[in-house]
Design a protein around this nucleic acid. Structure first.
Length: 650
DNA sequence: GTAGGGTTAG
């Protein structure tokens, strides 16, 4: 580097100082490079300014240059470079710098150096190193303790974080807003509202004015503890809520099952002239996706495009999921193909999108392409692709994938993976093989047995069901799902005595069945229907429509299938009960409400669609010449011209 | 040294 030699050291330093104060670091740098003698203070202020301006790479280059120049770094230098290495994720480099610091005779006991080092190790998840360094610091201060607390919460050691906080208070170190912001996150992660409330009280006492960050943490803490109304109260008292605060509230509402409120708060946020970012948009998209609100989802997609965020991986994955859950798989895959960078979550979302739409081949194809795409499968990938195989009845593909997990030494075969495989085998009718597989698991949990039980129901194997039920009861006597399953198995095989016994037993155990419900969105309004529910204002018209449909489809060969009535009624009443199943009511209402033949009817059901209704909808799609999409608790069924996308396998 | 995000069967 050419050095023309700026003559006066002190004047040069002052000039650089002035440039830095004006944030004109590039001009400062030009001058700096020209100086013949450079003082350590100037090196330090150049480095720390680069870091402040988030030009971390340049900061590190300068530090390396400094070492080559033979300058001996001091405490100020090290506290900056530790931060730089931690921001860039360079653990080895950071360790080297730590070593160099020790060799040069400096000590970590300086609280500035120590805190930066603790923060660096903590961010790398090296909590033991962080703790060792902090133990050497005699004069501990609030910054150091906060760095430790953050380190522990970010590494899932929330309980330990709280302990550090407690000791800190005991040692007479006053917590500030930074500390509260972090420690409240720990309470939220632990979902411990008692400690959370105590810390809330402490916060009120300790800080004269709340900072936005600590109040936002408070809001998040309440929503993670399931106390969303308290979050709303915290929010109401904000006068300076920023985008993070709004996003945290929206997220909290979604996590607490209040998706509609989340959307209306989002609209309120927009009216308040806040510009959403990728965080906000991925969160509201999740709300749309849970409720399968296509119209709203599309509006947000419009916003995403306007902001140029459609290739962002977080927003992209949320869009894929939303379109997948709304059954528009083509849109999901076009977003997937346009993503800037693929990662495992977006691939998993896409695979699961195919799984829900019954497109097992595409799901497996994408899974097989993953190595070529440079994306390593994780736990979720296997869950998604195995459930795709299960939905599509792809037994051999499923077996191949399951054994590839076994051979993949980076991923441990979990009980979730076994559950998927048991489901796949069971639904494909390989009940014994499924049972043998469960017996290979060390401590099989109740979920595995319950999964097999549901396969027994599909294949009407009462004997096996009884045997499996005993295993369930050993593990979890009051398992609601298993009791309902077994009682349905008895019902579908006409064993009404046993059904009655089960009902009495379930009543004694206070187990309740979740009633079936279907809904449809018409002109932005959701209409819900229960089986036999005649409370809808247009129920007379719905009844008429059902009658018209029945006549037409019976002419084409539809016969009600009373096996799907799970009550002890005579044949006539059984048919009547089938006739008013909630999904039929919703579809009849949908047909009444939209005469435009080119639009499809989209209904939702909270449980799985029943076999008779499935058949009924196939016929109806043919006579009305319209596409009908039914999303049940697990997947989509696209009915067109008498056929369903699931190929009758679900 | 601080607050907010995307996927998952049964």
């Amino acid at each position: 580097m050419k050095k023309s030699g700026f003559p006066l050291l002190s004047l040069g330093n002052k000039l650089i100082d002035a440039y830095i104060k004006c944030e004109a670091i590039d001009d400062g740098r030009t001058l700096f490079d020209e100086m013949t003698t450079r003082h350590i203070v100037t090196w330090n202020s150049m480095i720390s300014t680069y870091i402040r301006q988030k030009r971390i790479g340049e900061a590190i280059k300068l530090y390396e240059e400094m070492i080559l120049d033979g300058i001996i770094a001091d405490e100020f230098t090290y506290s900056s470079v530790f931060k730089a290495f931690s921001d860039l994720g360079l653990l080895q480099e950071g360790r080297k710098a730590h070593g160099r610091l020790l060799v040069s005779g400096l000590s970590v006991s300086n609280v500035f150096v120590g805190s930066a080092l603790v923060d660096m190790y903590a961010k790398f998840g090296k909590l033991t190193d962080a703790r060792l360094v902090s133990d050497e610091i005699v004069e501990k201060d609030v910054v150091l303790m906060t760095a430790l607390i953050v380190g522990y919460t970010q590494n899932g050691e929330d309980f330990e974080a709280l302990k550090i906080f407690r000791d800190m208070i005991k040692d007479g170190i006053r917590a500030n807003d930074f500390t509260f912001a972090s420690v409240l996150i720990a309470c939220g992660n632990l979902a411990d509202m008692n400690i959370g409330k105590q810390i809330h009280g402490l916060l009120v006492k300790s800080v004269s004015e709340f900072a936005v960050a600590s109040r936002t943490s408070l809001l998040t803490m309440y929503s993670k503890c399931g106390l969303i109304d308290d979050s709303l109260k915290v929010f109401d008292r904000f006068f300076n809520a920023n985008l993070v605060t709004w996003t945290a509230l929206i997220m909290g509402l979604v996590q607490n099952g209040r998706e509609e409120s989340a959307l209306s708060i989002f609209c309120q946020m927009i009216r308040n002239s806040m510009t959403p970012n990728a965080f906000t948009l991925s969160t509201v998209l999740r709300a749309c996706s849970i409720l399968a609100m296509l119209t709203e989802g599309q509006e947000i997609h419009g916003l995403v495009l306007k902001m140029g965020l459609d290739r962002n991986r977080f927003v992209g994955a949320a869009l894929i999921d939303m379109y997948g859950k709304c059954g528009i798989i083509k849109m999901a895959s076009s977003i997937f193909n346009n993503l800037n960078e693929l990662d495992v979550v977006s691939v998993n979302s896409m695979i699961y999108g195919y799984a829900q739409s019954g497109n097992g081949e595409e799901a497996v194809k994408l899974y097989d392409q993953m190595p070529g795409l440079g994306v390593k499968p994780n736990d979720g990938t296997f869950v998604s692709v195995l459930s795709a195989c299960s939905n599509a009845g792809l037994l051999e593909e499923g077996r191949r994938i399951f054994s590839s997990i076994k051979n993949n030494h980076e991923i441990e075969l979990s009980s979730d993976h076994y559950a998927c495989m048991v489901d796949l085998l069971g639904r494909a009718g390989k009940l014994e093989e499924a049972e043998r597989l469960i017996n290979q698991v060390k401590n099989p949990d109740v979920v595995l047995w319950r999964t097999l039980l549901s396969s027994c129901k599909i294949h009407g194997d009462v004997e096996m069901a009884k045997r499996i039920m005993n295993r369930v009861i050993e593990l979890k006597p009051g398992d609601e799902g298993a009791h309902i399953l077994l009682s349905n198995i008895y019902a579908s095989t006409g064993n009404w005595n046993e059904v009655t016994k089960m009902k009495v037993m379930m009543k004694d155990m206070k187990l309740k069945k979740n009633p079936a419900m279907s809904w449809i969105e018409v002109d932005g309004e959701v209409h819900k229907f229960m089986a036999g529910d005649l409370s809808h204002p247009r129920s007379m018209d719905i009844d008429e429509e059902l009658k018209r449909l029945s006549e037409k489809i019976e002419g084409l060969g539809y016969v009600p299938d009373a096996r799907f009535v799970l009550q002890d009624l005579d044949e006539k009443d059984k048919e009547r009960s089938l006739y008013y199943h909630s999904e039929k009511l919703a579809i009849a209402f949908g047909l009444l409400s939209s005469s435009n033949r080119s639009t499809c009817i989209r209904i939702f059901k909270n449980l799985r669609v029943c076999g008779d209704c499935h058949n009924w909808i196939k016929f109806v799609s043919r006579v009305v010449g319209r596409e009908i999409i039914a999303r049940d608790a697990k997947r989509f069924h696209h009915f067109r011209d008498g056929f369903c996308s699931c190929g009758d396998f679900w």
